[in-house]
Write a protein that binds this DNA or RNA. Structure first.
Lengths: 203, 203
DNA sequence: ACTTTTGCCTACACCTATTAGGCGCAGAAG
DNA sequence: CTTCTGCGCCTAATAGGTGTAGGCAAAAGT
C-alpha cells in the first residue's frame, strides 16, 4: 500500500510526544504510535530500540524544550522578575503539555541524565539565585527548594489536586511566587542554634 | 493442589503494596501478584475488579497509612515542631516505601479522591498552619505551597535528583524546613485591595 | 449427609512488546 | 533506460499481560 511512510527517529519522538499530550504519557505505546503512522509495530524497531528507548527520547525532548523555554524566559530578567518568569515556564509547560511534562519526570539512567537538559535546568535555577544573596551551601538548598516547589506544584495541579477547591490555582501560584521571593531575601542564616533532639521514628 | 489459598481483598492489596515497594508501582501486575500467591491470574478477579481497581486500592491504602503517620506525628506538636515532624513523615514514607509513595500519586476519580485520606492530609496541613498567623486566602495558598514542597521534594529525591550532588539530601531537607518556618512567619500580606491590572500574558 | 456457596481452576480471546526473516521500492551504477 | 543494491516496511511468530466464561470441588449452612 502506502510504501515508505518516511519514518525517522525525530518524527517518531515528536509524534510520540504529541501522543503523550493527547492520551497521557503512560499510554504511549509502540503499537499506538505505529497505528498513528499507519504502519505495523515491528516497523518502528528499525528506528527506536523499543518501548523504553522511545519513552526516554520523549523525556529528553521534553527536558530540552522546557530548558529552551526557561532560557528564553530568563533572558534579560533578574531577581523576582526572573523567578516569576521561570516559574511560569514550569506551570505553563505542564498545563499545555501534560504528557511531555509527565515524560520529563521519567527517571533516567545516569548517562542519560548527564547528557540531558537536566543540568541546564539546575544551572538556570542557580542563575535565578544570583539575584538574591545566598552563601554557598544555602544556595544549593535553595536550588532544591525551588525545584521542589516548581515540580511539586505543577505535578499536583496536573493531577487535579487544586482543581476543585476554593481560590483559583493561578492566584495561589502568584502568591506562592511572591512568598518565595520574600523567603529568598529573608533566607535564614546557616544552622539555627537549636540542635533539638529528634524524638521519634515511628513504625 | 493447594486448594483455597485464602485470598481476600485486604491481603491482595497489602501484598500488592509490598510488591510495589519491591519492584516499583508501575510494575505491579495482576499476573505477578497472582504468582506471588501461587495462584492463576483469573483467580484474582473474584476479589478485585481488575488492574485499575487493584492499583487504586493500593493508592488508597498508601494515602491512609501516610495520613495515620501524619496524625501521629502531629499529636502534641505545634508550630515549627509540627511542621518538621510532618515534613519528616513525607520524606520518611517516600524513602521507606517508594512503591507505596508512587501509588499515592495515582490520579483518582473524584469519588475515590473524596473518599480517600486526601482530605485528611489537607486538614492536617491546615492544622500545622494554626501555629502561624495567616488570614484566610493566604492560608490556602500556604497549604498548597507546603503540599508542593513536601511532594516535590519527596518525588525528586525518589527519582534520584539529589543523589549525586554535593550536600546530603537530609541536610537540605532540614534547611528547607527551617526556611519554610521563616517564610510562614514572614508571609507577605495579600496584594493591595486594588485589583491591579495583570501586566502581561506571554505566549 | 445434603445442598449451597464460592474460591480457585481451565480455556479462551485479545492486547502489547519484540525478534527473525522476506520482499519490493528508491536511488545509484552501468 | 535498465539493473543492482539496500533499507524500509512487511509478515510471521513468541512471550507475557488483561480480562471473561464456565467448571469443579472444598467449605459452610441446614
Amino acid at each position: 500500500m502506502a510504501a515508505r511512510v518516511g519514518l525517522t527517529v525525530e518524527r517518531l519522538v515528536r509524534a510520540g510526544a504529541d501522543l503523550a499530550d493527547e492520551v497521557g504519557f503512560d499510554r504511549v505505546t509502540v503499537a499506538l504510535l505505529a497505528r498513528h503512522f499507519g504502519v505495523r509495530s515491528a516497523s518502528l524497531y528499525a528506528h527506536v530500540k523499543g518501548s523504553d528507548d522511545l519513552r526516554t527520547r520523549i523525556a529528553l525532548l521534553s527536558l530540552e524544550e522546557m530548558a529552551d523555554l526557561g532560557a528564553a524566559a530568563l533572558a534579560g530578567r533578574a531577581g523576582k522578575d526572573a523567578l516569576a518568569a521561570f516559574a511560569e515556564v514550569y506551570r505553563g509547560y505542564a498545563e499545555r503539555h501534560p504528557g511531555r511534562y509527565a515524560a520529563a519526570q521519567l527517571p533516567l539512567s545516569p548517562e542519560d541524565a548527564a547528557a540531558s537538559a537536566g543540568p541546564r535546568h539546575a544551572a538556570m535555577t542557580r542563575a535565578i539565585l544570583r539575584g538574591y544573596d545566598l552563601p554557598e551551601p544555602d544556595r544549593t538548598h535553595a536550588v532544591r527548594l525551588l525545584g521542589s516547589v516548581f515540580h511539586g506544584y505543577a505535578d499536583l495541579e496536573l493531577k487535579g489536586a487544586f482543581r476543585h477547591s476554593a481560590p483559583d490555582s493561578r492566584e495561589s501560584w502568584a502568591r506562592i511566587v511572591d512568598a518565595l521571593d520574600v523567603l529568598l531575601r529573608a533566607w535564614p542564616a546557616s544552622p539555627a542554634p537549636t540542635p533539638a533532639p529528634i524524638t521519634r521514628e515511628p513504625s
